[in-house]
C-alpha cells in the first residue's frame, strides 16, 4: 500500500531521516514510537507527500508522480496542530471532499461529511466556528476531515493530543476499526501505552533511523532503554500490556 525505500530527508543540510525502509499493508494499524527529534513527524510528512521526499511509493508508484488531487483521494493526513479559523466545523470537514468535488459539493459529499461528524461524535458542533471550540474538539474535527476524504491510507500525527481520557480511547478504537475495514493506518504516538494497546505493529525510531519494526514480539525492556534511554518494566494489568518507567 505505502512503502519507503532508503528514505532520506534533510532540513537545511541536517539529515533528519537517514535511510528508512518501511512497508505498510492494507488493514494494518501501525504506531510510530520514539523520542522527541527522532524524525517521526518528518517521516509521516514524507508519507503524506507534504515534504518533497524521494523514495516514497504509494501502491507501487512513486508518490511524486501522483497529482495532488489523486494523492488526496488515497492518502489523508492529520497534522499535530490545526489552525482555528472562522470556518464552521461543517465547512472544515467538507474540505475533505475537495479532492472529489467540482465547484459545489454534491448531496453525497454532504452525506459523507455528516457521517464523518457522527463517527467522531461532533455533529452537535456542525455550525460552530472552529475558533469557538476546544482544542480537543478541534482535533476531532481534523480527524473527521481526514475521514471525509475516504482515504485508503490514513496518517495521523499524535491524534490523541489534547484529548481527554475517554476521547483518547474513542479515537484509538476508531483507528483500529478503520484498519479492520481495510485501511492502512499509521499514527505517531507519544503515549506508549495507548499505542501498545491499540496498534498491531510498532515502528521504533531514533535519530532518523529505524530501531525496530514488528508486532508485540519485538517489545522488550532493552528496546525501550535503547530508544528512550529510560529503564522500563513491561507488565500486564487487567489483561492490558503496559510499560512503566522505573
Amino acid at each position: 500500500m505505502i512503502e519507503t525505500k532508503n528514505l532520506r530527508f534533510s532540513y537545511n543540510g541536517m539529515e533528519v531521516l537517514k535511510g528508512v525502509d518501511f512497508k505498510g499493508e492494507k488493514g494494518e494499524f501501525i504506531g510510530i514510537l520514539g523520542p522527541n527529534g527522532a524524525g517521526k513527524t518528518t517521516f509521516l510528512r514524507c508519507l503524506a507527500g507534504i515534504l518533497d521526499c524521494r523514495g516514497v511509493f504509494v501502491r507501487g508508484k512513486p508518490l511524486n508522480e501522483y497529482s495532488p488531487r489523486d494523492l488526496a483521494r488515497i492518502v489523508a493526513y492529520v497534522p499535530q496542530r490545526v489552525e482555528p479559523s472562522f470556518l464552521t466545523v461543517f465547512d472544515t470537514v467538507l474540505l475533505g471532499r475537495r479532492p472529489y468535488m467540482g465547484l459545489t459539493p454534491s448531496d453525497s459529499d454532504i452525506k459523507t461529511v455528516e457521517e464523518a461528524l457522527k463517527r467522531l461524535g461532533i455533529e452537535h458542533l456542525s455550525l460552530k466556528r472552529t475558533n469557538e471550540i476546544s482544542g480537543g474538539e478541534l482535533q476531532k474535527v481534523s480527524i473527521a476531515r481526514a475521514l471525509a476524504q475516504e482515504p485508503q491510507i490514513l496518517l495521523m500525527d499524535e491524534p490523541t493530543n489534547n484529548l481527554d481520557l475517554r476521547s483518547q480511547l474513542e479515537v484509538m478504537r476508531l483507528a483500529r476499526e478503520l484498519a479492520n475495514d481495510g485501511k492502512t493506518v499509521v499514527t505517531v504516538m507519544h503515549d506508549v501505552n495507548l499505542a501498545l494497546r491499540f496498534a498491531k505493529r510498532f515502528l521504533f525510531m531514533k535519530d532518523g533511523k529505524k530501531m525496530a519494526d514488528g508486532g508485540l514480539e519485538v517489545l522488550n525492556e532493552r528496546l525501550f532503554e535503547e530508544v528512550y534511554g529510560v529503564k522500563v518494566e513491561i507488565g500486564e494489568i487487567g489483561g492490558v500490556l503496559v510499560v512503566v518507567p522505573i
Binding site: 490545526v82 489552525e83 475537495r98 476531515r145
Partner: peptide
C-alpha cells in the same frame, strides 16, 4: 478555505 487551516491540511486535501 483550505489555506486558513494551515499548509499541511491544504496540501493533504490536494491544494
Amino acid at each position: 478555505n483550505a489555506s486558513t487551516l494551515g499548509d499541511d491540511i491544504a496540501k493533504s486535501v490536494g491544494v
